[in-house]
């Protein structure tokens, strides 16, 4: 490598970062006369997300016209099929968290694709990391390992809460699984003698993935479409509501957590079959 004072790669990286920075700062100096995204979307009635917001996609157009533009409040005499928290029962989609109802009810096939992408990437890590030597923990201190043993159960509990409560509050299977994987990461990074059997994790992960696809095919059998919600939804906002969403989110959380734990451990110690 020859030494140069002017590095071309760094110069282009600086230009890219500067352009991105100007792009980020620019909204503060917006005069309001900018271009609209699309003239079709200026009218709020035409947006599909509004129909999702009302949670009654099947007959949303009729209800919006009856409501006379007043989408969120029900007035006297006007029959609006609005969704009310803790009152509506058996809505079209169960979760009170709107993001969950889109991610796992209307766009559940997309989520299946995300799980497949994660599975393939972890498979690639496991294939590539064979035969690497383990990297032992240097200068392992007692405070570090004891603090990790104190923190890890709390981290696991937060992860389980995030995916079990994903139909009511923000969160879901992917963040919950990532938090659980962070707990395992902290455990095997701080204490050198900690080791888990990755074969059991792989078994759990495979079982969870198989049950997710089986539930999707069950939706195809009992209702009309893949990933159809065939269990009762319950009252909106209750803890025990939208049962299929809770089951699939828990399975996704377990699958993602075990998958990421095994993948991180492979990156840390190399693939070992034990």
């Amino acid at each position: 490598m020859r030494e140069t004072s002017f590095n071309t790669g760094k110069f282009f990286a600086l230009i890219i970062v500067a352009v991105l920075g100007i792009f980020m700062i620019s909204p503060f100096f917006d005069t309001g006369s900018g271009k609209k995204i699309s003239p079709r979307l200026e009218n709020l009635k035409d947006r599909v997300s509004l129909h999702y917001g009302l949670k009654n996609v099947n007959d949303a157009s009729k209800n919006i016209e009856e409501c006379q533009g007043d989408y969120y409040t029900c007035r006297e005499g006007v029959k609006c099929n609005n969704v009310i928290y803790k009152e509506t029962a058996d809505a079209e989609t169960g979760p009170a968290n709107l993001v969950t109802s889109i991610v796992l009810d209307y766009r559940a096939f997309d989520t299946l694709g995300e799980i497949t992408v994660l599975f393939i990437s972890i498979l690639g890590v496991a294939l590539l990391m064979t035969g690497f030597p383990a990297l032992p923990v240097k200068n392992e201190s007692m405070i570090q390992s004891a603090g990790a043993k104190f923190l890890v159960p709390i981290i696991m509990l937060v992860g389980i809460y995030i995916f079990l409560h994903g139909h009511l509050t923000p969160g879901g299977g992917f963040p919950g699984g990532a938090v659980i994987a962070t707990g395992f990461l902290l455990m095997f990074m701080t204490s050198g003698d900690y080791n888990f059997r990755s074969r059991r994790f792989k078994t759990v992960e495979t079982a969870a993935g198989t049950i997710i696809v089986a539930l999707a095919i069950a939706g195809l059998i009992f209702k009309d479409s893949f990933f159809a919600n065939f269990l009762p939804n319950g009252r909106l906002g209750d803890l025990f509501s939208s049962f299929l969403i809770v089951i699939i989110y828990s399975l996704i959380g377990i699958k993602v957590g075990s998958e990421l734990s095994v993948g991180l451990r492979n990156l840390y110690t190399g693939e070992k079959d034990d």
Binding site: L135, P170, P175, A178, L185
Partner: peptide, 22 residues
Amino acid sequence: PDVAITEASVGAALTTAIYVFG
């Protein structure tokens, strides 16, 4: 908040750990 939780757990924790291993 959904995206914020995912960004904090994946971007700040897991990606940093993977880069540190690298």
